[in-house]
Design a protein around this nucleic acid. Structure first.
Lengths: 233, 233
DNA sequence: TATTTTTTAGGACATATGTCCTTCCCAACA
DNA sequence: TGTTGGGAAGGACATATGTCCTAAAAAATA
């Protein structure tokens, strides 16, 4: 982790995402911009709560580790998103572990100053409300989807979400082999089983295995299989 | 559904739950108190969004129905809780179906007046923020729990939550047979499988089957099985 | 009381998923 | 060039769970 002492860049992000109003004047001096590299942890579950972060560049992975040591990926995040919002409101320790997947820039504010200067700041409250309701909605859909459908369907949905994201270099309907472990953890199954499912999808002609990656062959077929739902957006 | 024209009762609820400050003076004339009887629907998924409700008496069941016709119970709610908060913030149609399990009293406000008189009312915003973060937290735990543990563990946790609720007539560690279908839908499994699990728990001496209900025999054992987690609170 | 309907428990079988382990392949390296 | 180590795919087997159907019991009804 490295603090970027670059007020212009900070300004730029605030402007680009139209979030100037969220942080009022009193708060501005306490905004910091941090950079994290691939693989770095921003915070870990159980840590005491310190900062509210706003993700303005890069990609984050949010996951939890069970007492038995299993990893469950809860989501991937891209700008604009917020980390530590639930903890800020509830005043609890960090719930999940957050890791940088790529180079990441985050605006950070210590909760001390948030409480002091912005606990009644309407734009911030509204912003948080908006972000958190969205999170809730996604989580709720995700829960239903996971309980109601088997891995094959979930993976189809996942593939559609991940492989056709324009903002990503690998939007071309491909998924690197290495990403399969993450995929398995995200949809809550084992790597072994995911392989089985891929084999099946492959027999159906929906995807194809190549060296180093798999590629979507029949986007419509997958979409049909996934009930036209993209819950991993 | 019936509107209760009882300003005193309304006042009583506002006082009892300390939520007077949430609804400011402008809003007060537009607060209504509704009564629903067992089995009545408050709203159904897909309905246009109209009211924000505050549950002040009774018990609600929140569920969703999949395109395939499967029912998944998302939660049971008791006072103090809010219905329609997510929809209000996101301005979307009703997400889930809400049904009264017992006689229910709810304070209702049309979103028209909320937007008009309270869209910047800090106490309301904070209240919503608090309620929704709690919902998110519960939902998030629930998702992890469901993906990480088998039905046996989930049911153990469910039993502990439901059977030992002091405010309920059946707190004595019993669960009526009829409630098993709901239980199955809540933890996202089939009635058939739940029966299998109960049989197993019964062999282990953790619960016992009686005519018309099952009863918890070894609360500690169940708690251990459930990893000491009560996610259905 | 006899008959029908509903509720409840479980049998039989198929599918979904997990765990452990092995094999194969390719790249890094001695 | 041969060796080694790690990643990737999948075999074998056990467990978890779903679907469909049946049997027993209880409740409702004729």
């Amino acid at each position: 982790m490295k603090e970027l002492n670059d007020p212009d860049l900070l300004e730029h992000y605030l402007g680009a995402y139209e979030i100037e109003s969220i942080f009022n004047e009193d708060l501005r001096p306490y905004l910091a911009l941090y950079r994290y590299d691939h693989g770095e942890l921003i915070c870990s579950q159980g840590d005491p709560y310190d900062y509210l972060y706003v993700l303005v560049k890069g990609k984050l992975k949010i996951f939890t580790t069970s007492p038995e040591g299993k990893t469950l990926i809860l989501s991937f995040k891209t700008p604009l998103d917020v980390v530590g919002d639930i903890e800020y409101v509830q005043n609890t320790e960090i719930i999940n572990t957050v890791e940088a997947v790529s180079e990441v820039h985050m605006i950070a504010v210590h909760h001390r100053y948030l409480k002091k200067f912005a606990s009644d700041h309407t734009p911030l409250l509204k912003f948080l409300l908006d972000v958190i309701t969205q999170k809730f909605y996604v989580k709720s859909s995700s829960l239903s989807f996971n309980l109601l459908y088997p891995v094959e369907v979930r993976f189809a949905s996942y593939l559609l979400s991940v492989c056709f994201d324009e903002s990503d270099a690998l939007y071309s309907g491909k998924l690197s082999t290495g990403a399969l472990i993450d995929a398995a953890n995200l949809i809550g199954t084992s790597y072994r089983h995911l392989n089985r499912v891929i084999q099946h999808l492959s027999q159906e002609g929906l995807v194809e295995r190549h060296k180093g990656f798999i590629v979507v062959k029949d986007r419509n077929g997958l979409s049909k299989l996934a009930n036209h739902k993209n819950i991993y957006e």
